Simulated scan of single mutants.
Amino acid sequence: MAGAIGEHWENEHFAPAPGFTPGEGGVRKQLFDSYAASVDWTDHDHVTRALRVFESMLRRLGRESRKYGGDGLPADTVADLREAFARDGCRLDDELRLHTARVAHLVVHADALSRGEAQGRFARMGDHDGCSVSGRLAHQLGRPAALAGCSAAGAARRYGAT
């Protein structure tokens, strides 16, 4: 799966952030974080492309689960992801496709976060115990699906680092 993580990001023309210092977590989470750190959350194009990365990863995880006899992503995981995406103006449909209604909201939210005006949901990843879409996705890639549901750092604290 680690190779697929890089492939999804690189398909959208992202590269790992230069000088990225890995934090907590396993190889897949650290790889995901290195690419996510290169996203300029104040740039509309970057946000749009990052959302496509998230969608393609979610869809792949669903396909992989069904390929091996599962029912796709667990319903509680999808519900948590839908809730997190909805807070940032996105809708995750039944086919795990993302629909954005307010991408500008994401840009404004990310800009506010970069100024330290708010605690993060989407753009801040892994430095609090709250929920974040990107943290959930990173956690999903590095842990069993049943454990997904909180920020990467919160997950590492809650379930132990991978």
Rank of each mutant, 00 (worst) to 15 (best):
A79V: 05
L81H: 03
L81C: 06
L81N: 07
R82D: 01
R82Q: 15
E83I: 12
E83T: 14
E83V: 12
A84M: 04
A84Q: 07
A84S: 15
A84R: 01
F85D: 00
R87N: 11
R87W: 10
G89W: 04
G89Q: 05
G89E: 09
C90Q: 01
R91K: 13
R91C: 12
L92N: 03
L92F: 06
D93W: 02
D94M: 05
D94F: 03
R97V: 02
R97L: 02
L98Y: 05
L98T: 01
L98K: 05
H99E: 00
A101N: 14
R102G: 09
R102V: 08
A104H: 04
V107G: 01
V107C: 04
V108T: 14
V108A: 09
V108Q: 06
V108L: 12
A110C: 05
A110Y: 05
A110M: 04
A110I: 02
D111V: 03
A112G: 13
A112W: 09
A112C: 13
A112T: 10
L113Y: 10
L113D: 14
L113A: 12
S114Q: 15
R115H: 13
G116F: 05
G116E: 05
G116T: 10
G116N: 11
E117S: 13
A118D: 13
Q119W: 08
G120P: 12
G120A: 06
R121A: 09
A123P: 03
A123G: 11
A123Y: 02
R124Q: 01
G126I: 04
D127N: 00
D127A: 06
H128N: 13
H128E: 13
H128W: 10
D129E: 11
D129R: 13
D129F: 11
C131W: 07
V133E: 10
V133D: 08
V133T: 13
V133Q: 12
S134K: 01
G135K: 05
L137S: 04
L137R: 04
L137C: 08
H139F: 08
Q140C: 13
Q140K: 04
L141D: 00
L141M: 03
L141H: 00
G142E: 12
G142T: 11
G142A: 15
P144I: 10
A145V: 00
A146D: 14
L147Q: 07
L147G: 06
L147M: 10
G149V: 08
C150E: 11
S151H: 05
S151L: 01
S151V: 07
A152I: 02
A152W: 08
A153Y: 01
A153W: 07
G154N: 09
G154H: 08
G154V: 06
A155K: 10
A155Q: 11
